[in-house]
Amino acid sequence: MFWPIFLRVITSGDLWQASLQFAALLLLPALGGVISERSGVVNIAMEGMMLIGCYVSVAVTLASHNVLVGVLAAIMAGGLLALVHGVVSIHFKADQIISGIAINVAALGLTNYLNIVQTGGQGIPSLASSLRLPILSWGPLGQLPFIGQVLFQQNIVFYLTLIILLGMQFLLFRTNLGLRIRAVGEHPQAADTAGIPVRLLRYACVVSSGLLSGLAGAFLALGVAGTFNPNMTAGRGFIALAAVVFGKYTPLGAAGACLIFGLGLALSVRLQDTGIDSNLLATLPYILTIVALIGLVGRTVAPAADGVPYEPGSAE
């Protein structure tokens, strides 16, 4: 009973289309994580920033009747939350893990609260298709068998994510700015003595991680779900965090990791016909995450100054 269904599932375009979509959804916050950690600030709050992005995108889209405005608002909201994390960890040099946890918990509570206040506990109804992020049409390419469905019937944000992925890989490893960001994350004292504005770069990178997570939230709410549900991110921000480490703190590596996790997520949805309990299946991507972290990667080396606040000239 299991194997025939399994075979049918893994050869279907549906599964791979969904895998790529889930992967892109994970990759956006993962890219945020990569750039933040490369600059030396640990960010475990992508989950919360994404969730805020979900809520704000839906609320603003409903209010303005304009998807673009909703998406921009979600990006700004993610960035703003990241700025909070930046102030706490860069300016006040507080513990970055604690700050991240606080933001995650606060974002969950805040979105639940606003959701209840706004809808009187009814929940937000499904959005009209004009208020959703559209599938990008590639004309005849979309009609190709299998490939067409997998690659050319994706949401517009999917393609945007690919551009951001390549852009960030290039930025970090081929530009002067990228060299400076990596320097700041490895050895902020050295960067400072070389005349690089350490804090400014760290702020920029942390805020970028929020912008990307906010965009991911809008993608999830306006592109995939078409509504807002409480805690709809369901741990994706944390899987993204695992993808950052699994991908050895590089954008392309994180993309590879997200593909694997995306496949896991898609499988857990599609394999429900096999009679395996759906709750059990839902744990698949997370188990995959743990296995990946302990087994496949070997040792990944975080940027040397990751999570260490910068204290200029304090040591004699």
């Binding site: 002067n176 990228g178 990596r182 320097a183 070389a194």
Partner: peptide, 27 residues
């Protein structure tokens, strides 16, 4: 305590912060 970044190359460490082309250029 040297202000050098171990995983980067000698040239990258030397020009860091004053790379040819400025901050927005390709390295």
């Amino acid at each position: 305590h040297f202000m050098l970044i171990p995983p980067l190359t000698v040239a990258e460490n030397i020009v860091l912060g004053q790379e040819p082309g400025g901050s927005l250029a390709i390295y």
